[in-house]
Design a binder for these strands. Structure first.
Length: 419
RNA sequence: GUGGUCGUAGCUCAGCUGGUAGAGCACUCGGUUGUGGUCCGAGAUGUCGCGGGUUCGAGCCCCGUCGAUCACCCCA
């Protein structure tokens, strides 16, 4: 008999670390809210067809990483491997694009990919993403990138870089692809690599093996094939980033794993994380909405990996784990069993008024109870015995300074109002 | 999916060439009458990931399995 354990490759967050997970996620979301994005809460499973058509059957994500199963009604269901396809489906289904454009939404939640796990690569992982749908303005491209960058800076992240490129429009890609395929056909490659190149020749740019990188050294770059329009738009995005003091490098060899990307494409990479270093990425996706049966609207968005951003923050030592972080205003101790119900009642009333508080449960001696007060991280503590109940006063002790002052129990709430 | 490394108390780890387990931190209690964080003392804790095998005997050897981890692949 084996003991129960979590399925392979899932990440779990519990105290005390969960507070940092929450902080990271909230900071990412807050940045989106600040820029006018609204919540989109979507199902974690969708019709398998959505991802096949949206993400692309040639991608690894769809061809070998999806959690697909049949439900009891015989439908093929897939646990969402990414967020954009679901958002587009919902936008189309609910006619959101009939309202004013762009539609700006954010989402947050769990995503699923059946990969071999590794630090920073989980089978269930968390993303915060935004989508701006309906307009193709370089200003929006800039906005999306800036929302991500602002969140990272707010968290205090420093050791990361932004890489951008443009995948151009359909015409740009078609003419480049022709030359690239011709170039690759002259290379001596192993079978698997040839197969990958056949699906998407751009993928070879991303191969980390030195011999492939060497072979691709002189390959034609998509950036050199950009149409005048695409080039102009890409230049504008760079101009806006520069003006906003957002450092970036142009990486003409950057490849994204999802097939729907077009135009401006970007990736945030931490250099503290080893192999799974992408902490977020995104890009424009012309044609995705039409492919899914909607109007032919352009869109751009990103997905940020909450797990990885957390890992990056920890690697940069941004969280002081030595300090007791807590929202508690006060921790109250009943001196003996006879005062326990009085204290229980008191903290219940304090909570009604919005004061966050806790009490010493169990039958610990005063010393032990003080220890739990200390560990709770509460700002103040108070002991209540028969004297306090008789006089109606208690000694409010500041846990940082050790000083205490007399306060009437009936007006205790007032002590915390100002905070 | 491919290859490598690892898996011992809640945590971090030690355990010599096989003789049935330890340290630090954390935890609980105490250092006389109602106040924590330092100090001192005492105490509890493990089916040594799981299942087989070799052996008189295995935490140490072999096989399998589960999980983690590193790289590839891929990506958040």
């Amino acid at each position: 008999m084996s003991k129960l354990q979590a399925p392979k490759g899932v990440s779990e967050y519990f105290p005390p670390r969960s507070q940092y997970f929450e902080l990271v996620r909230e900071t990412l979301i807050q940045s989106a809210r600040t820029a006018g994005y609204s919540l989109m809460e979507l199902p974690v499973f969708e019709d398998t067809e959505l991802f096949k058509r949206g993400v692309g059957e040639s991608t690894d994500v769809v061809s070998k990483e999806m959690y697909t199963f049949e439900d009891r009604g015989g439908r093929s269901i897939t646990l969402r491997p990414e967020g954009t396809a679901g958002v587009m489906r919902s936008v189309i289904e609910n006619n959101l694009d009939k309202l004013s454009l762009p539609i700006k939404v954010w989402y947050s939640g769990a995503f699923f990919r059946a990969e071999r796990p590794q630090a920073g690569r989980y089978r269930q992982f968390y993303q915060v993403g935004i989508e701006a749908i309906g307009l193709n303005d370089p200003e929006i491209d800039f906005e999306v990138i800036a929302v991500a960058d602002r969140a990272f800076k707010k968290l205090g992240l420093k050791s990361y870089r932004l890489e951008i490129t443009s995948l151009g429009d359909a015409q740009s890609r078609a003419s480049h692809r022709k030359d690239l395929v011709a170039y690759i056909s002259k290379l001596k490659l192993d079978e698997g690599t040839v197969a990958r190149a056949a699906l998407n020749p751009l993928r070879l740019f991303d191969d980390k093996r030195p011999e492939i990188q060497d072979a691709m050294k002189d390959a034609p770059l998509l950036l050199d094939y950009l149409s005048a329009e695409s080039a102009e738009s890409f230049a504008k995005v760079q101009e806006l980033l520069t003006a906003a003091n957002i450092a970036f490098t142009i990486n003409p060899r950057m490849v994204r794993g999802l097939d729907y990307y077009t135009g401006t494409t970007f990736e945030f990479v931490s250099d503290k994380l080893g192999a799974q270093s992408g902490i977020g990425g995104g890009g424009r996706y012309d044609g995705l909405m039409a492919e899914l049966g909607g109007n032919d609207l352009s869109g751009i968005g990103f997905g940020l990996g909450v797990d990885r951003v957390l890992l990056a923050c920890e690697a940069e030592g941004l969280f002081d784990t030595s300090e007791n972080k807590s929202d508690l205003d006060i921790f109250i101790i009943a001196l003996s069993a006879s005062e326990k119900s009085f204290v229980s009642n008191l903290i219940n009333q304090l909570r009604d008024k919005g004061v966050s508080c806790d009490m010493a449960y169990g039958d610990r001696a005063l010393k032990g109870a003080m220890k739990s007060a200390d560990k709770s991280g509460a700002r103040y503590s108070a002991v209540i015995g028969s004297d306090e109940i008789k006089s109606g006063n208690l000694a409010l002790k500041d846990m940082k300074t050790g000083e205490s002052k007399e306060v009437r129990i009936s007006t205790l709430t007032a002590e915390f109002k100002t905070n």
